[in-house]
Design a protein around this nucleic acid. Sequence first.
RNA 1: AGGGGUGUCGCCAAGUGGUAAGGCAGCGGAUUUUGAUUCCGCCAUUCCUAGGUUCAAAUCCUAGCUCCCCUGCCA
Length: 563
Amino acid sequence: MTEHASAEAETHTHFIHEIINGDLASGKHTTVITRFPPEPNGYLHIGHAKSICLNFGTAVKYGGRCHLRFDDTNPAKEEVEYVESIQEDIRWLGFDWGDHLYFASDYFQPLYDYAVSLIKQGKAYVDDLTPEQIREYRGNLKQPGKNSPFRERPIAENLDLFERMKNGEFDEGSRILRAKIDMASPNMNLRDPAIYRIKKAHHHRTGDTWNIYPMYDYAHGLSDAIEGITHSICTLEFEDHRPLYDWFLDNLDVPCHPQQIEFARLNLTQTIMSKRYFLRLVNEGHVSGWDDPRMPTLRGMRRRGYPAAALRTLCEKVGVAKSNSIVELAFLESCVRDQLNQTALRRMAVLDPIKLVITNYPEGQFETFEADNNPEDPEAGTRPVLFGRELYIERSDFMEVPPKKFFRLAPGQEVRLKHTYYVTCQEVVKDENGEIVELRCSYDPLSRGGGTEDGRKVRGTLHWVSAAHAQPAEVRLYEPLFPENPDSEKDFAEQLNPNSLKTIQAWVEPALAEGQPGDLFQFLRNGYFCMDADSEPGKPVFNRTIGLVDSWAKMQKNQGSPA
RNA sequence: AGGGGUGUCGCCAAGUGGUAAGGCAGCGGAUUUUGAUUCCGCCAUUCCUAGGUUCAAAUCCUAGCUCCCCUGCCA
């Protein structure tokens, strides 16, 4: 709906936009260029979504642009597979980088030249210390570090050694290029940080042409400057890297000096957002893969049925600030429900069936009713639903001995079957175990369409499917991977919810058999469901994206445990 | 005396010296052919704490405290 689209477009202001407003007003900048710089070493998750929305959203807001730049400076960890999937996920989220797709590896030559310049200025040197020695010399949080014996190496020697590092003459770990800053700095990042290390690994783009690769701190700021980025937005943990970011730009002849600005990343309750953890979930078989609907990856959420718009709304509503925060899962869920309520087509499906026979309805007779596809959206139209003598209704919609305020079916109680007729339960049929197997009801022909002229009140309206027409479907019911907030002190595997996935067989109305994977539906009174890619012709599979708000369940729960 | 951040309702978060927005959650109630949606009402005399400045402080000053991040040849 347009109302929603505009609500999404009107972005709240926050400290980053205030900085930009100031830069635009002062004339420091006339345009805004941001970048989203993922390392292609894993799949994107909901945490990345916040950064994507911020960077791309800022570009859209100011009529500037946002570059997608892969930070591929560590060939040992990166794979092409991820550069593909990351692009796919960003597009799905709804953002576009136009022609501005870049790779840090595109700048390996200029980056190398900049390093040579640093050496020539006496601001970088080749260190022969071992990794262990470097760690020792670095000191610690309380103690200052001490200078490497190689720190005052002559410039010519540094130049020669660095070139030979590049040419592959030395072993990995034997030498390193360092910036000459201050070994006594209270900021550990300034204690002569590494700029280049030797790595004889095959790079997914540059192949075997390089034997040395630049470090993040060095490559990132310079890549920003090369691309003319105006505002380099990153997360809080890089706050004390900023002096180093600025140091490189201040000491080199670069086209411009972007401003690094840090914000708090998005965290969610009941989930863990780390690649290491994702890997374990997948490898130990707790989930089916990176796109398992329980995963907080964008692929997982997509498969679960979370609309991209809902994720965008969440990021917008959560805001941008600098305090560490953990957003409740319920916040995300409300964004998902809100979006789905407006867009999902309504269908009827019975997850736990009990047969209902209308004794005074002619055998072999069927009627067709037109049912609206979405009461929130008249444009969505209608679809025919078939009604007959034998139906399935939800087992939980009947109680033999109902409590007060139970508006559903019970002996002698009348309810409305959605879109069709009123029925009254006359008889309960049980098997030898006392299990209810069938409800025998009468219907009121005058209630056709779901109302009567006498205006009598019927409080309950039930969903149903025609036993003769219903199609079987596999339905996967999900719960959070963690029942509570994971305790990082304990092993997460012990904290996993054993019931995070429950697979059942349901009966669905025929219209559902024709869906496509990815189609989103509201199963009336049951929740939102997304057709899964595992579906086959005649064998649909649905993931429950999320249930509907259930105030009846809440009322019962509150009564069950009076506080 | 390491350094850098942060602290406003259960969870996010506005607020930038003029007397505490909004959203989520929760709680009431109305409407309802989804116990959904929608709607209406309630929900911080108080802003980490203690002092101080001021006619006036969440906002300014002082001193504490909390939590987070930093000792990869990861990003």
